[in-house]
């Protein structure tokens, strides 16, 4: 319930009506949306039990490693009710044709693979918020100062998932494991996304806000 209460408000994409409908507009809209979501996700992280007692450098390292996984998991959860489309925001839904025009077909396909997997399992909101916290706590940054404190954070969110599954899905004792087994695909997809947006950044044709660039550079 703590994690449910910490969930950020929804964000609208608000594509600029003055821009011509092309790949640059689509990517500009997505980068702007991501930048605003990142601000919310940083606020969200501070509400995770134990996160704020980590050192500031460790908080930064977890977020620098996991920010794209958190963004993608939110898109995935929003897209569960839609067939073959990604709901980046309520006002910004992208099908495969639109993704192809934006040069994002490979990423679209990869994220939809996650959507299908969670849809098949009937991923619940409680599980989604807990998995998102696990992704952050388990971000495998190479430069953590106090690994014991990060381990405590991991244990705390892992235990929350185990408890939830024990109470609500006693019919499937392996459900928590099944959920955790989706995380490698999330990591792989986030890595692809970061690489793709790094190359878009180098291209220089798409305007990007500073926080988004800062985090792309932290991962590069």
């Amino acid at each position: 319930s703590h994690l449910l209460g910490a969930e950020p408000e929804k964000v609208f994409a608000m594509p600029d009506p003055a821009l011509p409908d092309d790949d640059i507009k689509a990517l500009t809209t997505l980068c702007d949306l991501a930048d605003r979501e990142l601000v919310l996700n940083i606020g969200w992280a501070k509400h995770l039990p134990g996160f704020s007692s980590l050192s500031l450098p460790d908080q930064m390292r977890l977020l620098q490693s996991a920010w794209m996984e958190v963004l993608i998991l939110r898109v995935v959860f929003r897209s569960l009710g839609t067939q073959d489309k990604l709901v980046f925001a309520e006002d910004y839904v992208m099908d495969a044709d639109q993704a192809k025009l934006a040069g994002l077909l490979e990423l679209h396909t990869a994220i939809l693979q996650l959507v299908r997997r969670y849809r098949a399992m009937g991923l619940e909101r409680e599980e989604f918020v807990t998995l998102k916290a696990i992704a952050l706590a388990n971000s495998d940054s190479m430069h953590i100062e106090d690994m014991e404190a990060v381990q405590r954070l991991q244990d705390c969110v892992h235990e929350a998932l185990q408890d939830y599954e024990h109470i609500h899905h006693s019919e499937d004792p392996r459900r928590a494991g099944k959920l955790i087994m989706t995380l490698p695909l999330l990591r792989q997809t986030a890595t692809k996304a970061v690489q793709h947006f790094c190359s878009i950044k180098q291209d220089g044709r798409v305007p990007m806000h500073k926080l988004f660039v800062e985090l792309l550079e932290a991962n590069a």
Binding site: V39, I42, K46, L56, M60, L63, Q64, L211, E214
Partner: peptide, 15 residues
Amino acid sequence: KEKHKILHRLLQNST
């Protein structure tokens, strides 16, 4: 560290 100043600032804000 200067490179990550926005993340740093957002984490330091008390909200």
